[in-house]
Simulated scan of single mutants.
Amino acid sequence: MSYVGPDFEPPRPRRSRRPLTVALAALVPGALLGWLVYQAVGGSDGSAAAGGASTPPAASSASAGRSTPPTGSPDSASPDSASPRSSPGDDGKPTAAAPGATGSEPLAGKVVVIDPGHNSGNFRHTAEINRKVDIGTGRKECDTTGTATDDGYPEAQFTLDVSHRLRTLLEQQGATVKLTHDRDEPPWGPCVDERARIGNTAHADAAISIHADGSATGNRGFHVILPGSVHAGGADTRPIVAPSRDLGERIAGNFVRATGSAPANYVGGGTGLVTRADLGGLNLSTVPKVFIECGNMRDSKDAARLTSGAWRQKAAEGISEGIVSFLRG
């Protein structure tokens, strides 16, 4: 998701269950979570500097500071006009779905909703995705096309691939998993309000929206976006702010360990956590939900990771482990 408006600027032409790891991700304080876990595992390339490209506004009483969207964000931006290209490092094969739960798996009875950011068909439906929808605090575009790497690997393709991998891992743990959209169904969107509604209707125990950023070159790393405290219009996030923060902290800690990525060096002050109140997918959710920006598609080093199938599997594992930790308490 790039920072241009709340959703993205147009592109340019082990399953690990180590108890100590899960415990660490759950206990590290939110403000230091990204760095402490990152240092604990020995680090990797890409340092996370405090401060960043955007200056965060004042923090809400329930959570950390909210950052001003750089050039695009999970709910809106200028539509993309270029058609998606094939993914470098993508084997082109969907991840096989896991067998049905038997009732004895650790997540049996739990429901997880995965929201693959954007849709590869959005660029063909600019009128539809530019339609404004109510997000509680105002009106925003229904959806956006998302960003892309400089070589043309679309964010929408990345998010769907990671979502398929994540679904398989969670189903293997016994969870019931629903995607807000899959491949060409629907052919565009759905709108950000509908994405939230899908999780609400499913009574999800946890929901996550998968994204990748489109920020400036040199801006590196991941960040997890938490819902701010919103009570306006049809939005009331107050009941989900605390559990969503818990979910986000656990995902961030496990993402560091699984992928070797550092927290973003341009938002979140090095914590890997950002709070926002301008995203319809979060504002309208009534279930614990976060967004994750897995890296910056416009930075060549991050792009090399995002276009690697092996790395995307690690990303799915880190996200899965965070969700499992949250759902198991």
Rank of each mutant, 00 (worst) to 15 (best):
residue 259 T to Y: 07
residue 55 T to M: 10
residue 76 S to R: 08
residue 326 F to C: 03
residue 175 A to D: 06
residue 217 T to P: 12
residue 101 A to Y: 03
residue 324 V to Y: 06
residue 234 G to W: 01
residue 264 A to P: 00
residue 36 L to W: 12
residue 61 S to F: 15
residue 184 D to F: 02
residue 242 A to K: 15
residue 101 A to S: 14
residue 179 L to W: 10
residue 200 N to Q: 04
residue 16 S to V: 07
residue 172 Q to S: 14
residue 234 G to T: 13
residue 176 T to I: 11
residue 237 T to G: 11
residue 248 G to Y: 11
residue 149 T to I: 08
residue 147 T to H: 03
residue 52 G to Q: 06
residue 114 I to S: 00
residue 41 V to N: 09
residue 98 A to D: 14
residue 194 E to Q: 13
residue 158 F to N: 03
residue 164 H to T: 05
residue 125 H to P: 05
residue 304 A to G: 14
residue 50 A to P: 06
residue 282 L to R: 01
residue 10 P to N: 08
residue 44 S to T: 14
residue 28 V to A: 13
residue 216 A to Q: 11
residue 231 H to Y: 04
residue 196 A to K: 02
residue 71 T to M: 06
residue 167 R to I: 03
residue 98 A to I: 12
residue 287 V to E: 00
residue 191 C to Y: 07
residue 257 R to V: 15
residue 306 L to G: 06
residue 72 G to N: 09
residue 96 A to Y: 04
residue 107 L to E: 00
residue 103 G to Y: 11
residue 293 E to R: 05
residue 314 K to R: 15
residue 167 R to W: 03
residue 216 A to Y: 10
residue 177 V to H: 07
residue 17 R to F: 11
residue 100 G to I: 10
residue 183 R to H: 12
residue 113 V to M: 06
residue 109 G to N: 07
residue 24 L to D: 02
residue 176 T to G: 05
residue 11 P to W: 05
residue 227 P to G: 04
residue 163 S to C: 10
residue 7 D to E: 11
residue 14 R to A: 13
residue 255 F to L: 15
residue 61 S to D: 15
residue 315 A to C: 12
residue 75 D to H: 05
residue 74 P to C: 08
residue 43 G to A: 12
residue 32 L to C: 06
residue 216 A to R: 14
residue 29 P to C: 09
residue 55 T to S: 13
residue 208 I to S: 01
residue 101 A to M: 03
residue 54 S to G: 14
residue 203 H to F: 01
residue 277 A to T: 12
residue 93 K to I: 15
residue 22 V to W: 14
residue 181 H to N: 09
residue 260 G to F: 05
residue 108 A to F: 03
residue 97 A to F: 11
residue 106 P to V: 07
residue 138 G to D: 08
residue 48 A to Y: 05
residue 131 R to I: 01
residue 99 P to E: 12
residue 90 D to S: 15
residue 285 S to W: 00
residue 163 S to M: 07
residue 236 D to Q: 03
residue 321 E to I: 00
residue 55 T to C: 08
residue 61 S to I: 14
residue 32 L to Y: 10
residue 21 T to W: 13
residue 182 D to K: 06
residue 110 K to Y: 02
residue 158 F to M: 10
residue 133 V to Y: 00
residue 328 R to Y: 00
residue 250 R to N: 08
residue 281 G to I: 06
residue 15 R to C: 07
residue 253 G to R: 08
residue 37 V to T: 12
residue 239 P to Q: 12
residue 49 A to Y: 08
residue 62 A to H: 11
residue 251 I to F: 10
residue 92 G to D: 13
residue 137 T to K: 03
residue 318 G to R: 05
residue 13 P to H: 08
residue 34 G to L: 00
residue 189 G to M: 04
residue 290 V to T: 04
residue 302 D to Q: 07
residue 196 A to P: 02
residue 317 E to H: 10
residue 15 R to K: 11
residue 264 A to G: 02
residue 285 S to L: 01
residue 275 T to R: 09
